[in-house]
């Protein structure tokens, strides 16, 4: 009984930890913008409640068109980077899990080293290189570094996953009369798909979250993604960030993450832990 009370308390604590700041930013996004400029302390909006006014402002007013453009950039860049990264990682992970070849250890070590690479140390040389070859401030200029930094995680997750697939089933299907394409499509693809999907989610999170490349390798709204765009938010008073409008934009940027988490939490947890702990 005593243990049960402890667990309930623990669960409550975890939920409060995880959700309090989220509730807070939603609450702040519903405070009236003018009231916030004058100062309106407190967790709940109270008298300053403005409903969805700030969302309407951010999504319709001309001065926030750079944010709306950033949404398009972020979605486009993240999806392209995710797709390309997962394709390359699937090829590599298949080779690592199924084939014997020279340099396999080296590939895994390289991936591990890159996962720990200090991203900011690339800012100077990439800034210089991208300007020289015309990739600065373009979608491709962000997609390439996103791919490099998501490949390690995708390769680990996928190779751990592919190792668990019963590949003999492919031959069994062929013995039963399936062509090799049928065997691959009907047997292997359904088994591998969940792993590929998990890798895709983790890759998408990275690309969506990135700030270092987003702020250093872009200069205009042509390619600037959401996190960088948020840091450029200015309101009526240039020295005072428009907290409630910014919060509304931040909530909009968080919606895709919440949706993905709600739909796929089980897959994400297994993907996050598979690379780190054998199990």
């Amino acid at each position: 009984m005593k243990q049960k009370i402890g667990l309930v308390a623990g669960v409550t604590l975890i939920l409060a930890w995880c959700l309090l700041p989220v509730v807070w930013i939603v609450s702040l996004s519903m405070k009236d913008a003018a009231a916030v400029t004058n100062g309106s302390p407190g967790f709940w909006p109270g008298d300053a409640f403005a409903g969805f006014d700030n969302y309407v402002t951010v999504l319709t007013e001309d001065s926030y068109s750079q944010f709306r453009r950033a949404i398009v950039n972020s979605i486009g860049i993240s999806l392209i980077a995710t797709t390309l990264s997962v394709i390359l990682a699937t090829l590599a992970a298949y080779a690592i899990a199924r084939l014997e070849f020279k340099g396999k250890k080296l590939v895994l070590t390289t991936a591990l080293a890159i996962a720990m690479f200090p991203v900011v140390s690339l800012v100077s040389p990439l800034f210089d290189m991208w300007r020289a070859i015309g990739l600065y401030d373009t979608w491709a200029g962000l997609i390439i570094p996103y791919m490099s930094f998501t490949l390690p995680l995708a390769i680990w997750t996928l190779s751990a996953f592919f190792r668990e697939i019963p590949w003999e089933m492919e031959q069994a299907a062929q013995v039963d009369g399936a062509t090799s394409w049928q065997a691959f499509r009907r047997v292997i693809v359904p088994l591998a798909a969940p792993g590929v999907f998990t890798a895709a989610i983790l890759t998408f999170f990275f690309a969506w979250n990135d700030f270092v490349f987003g702020i250093t390798l872009t200069s205009t709204e042509t390619a600037r993604p959401i996190p960088a765009s948020l840091s450029f938010f200015v309101g009526a008073d240039p020295f005072n960030r428009p907290a409630s409008l910014l919060s509304a934009a931040a909530v909009i940027a968080t919606i895709p993450i919440v949706l993905i988490v709600l739909l796929f939490q089980r897959k994400i947890v297994s993907g996050l832990t598979s690379g780190a702990v054998k199990g």
Binding site: F205, P227, I260
Partner: peptide
């Protein structure tokens, strides 16, 4: 619990 614990993980650091 799993869903809520993934929200801080997935949220943009800037946010």
């Amino acid at each position: 619990i799993r869903t809520s614990i993934l929200i801080p993980y997935g949220i943009i650091t800037v946010v």
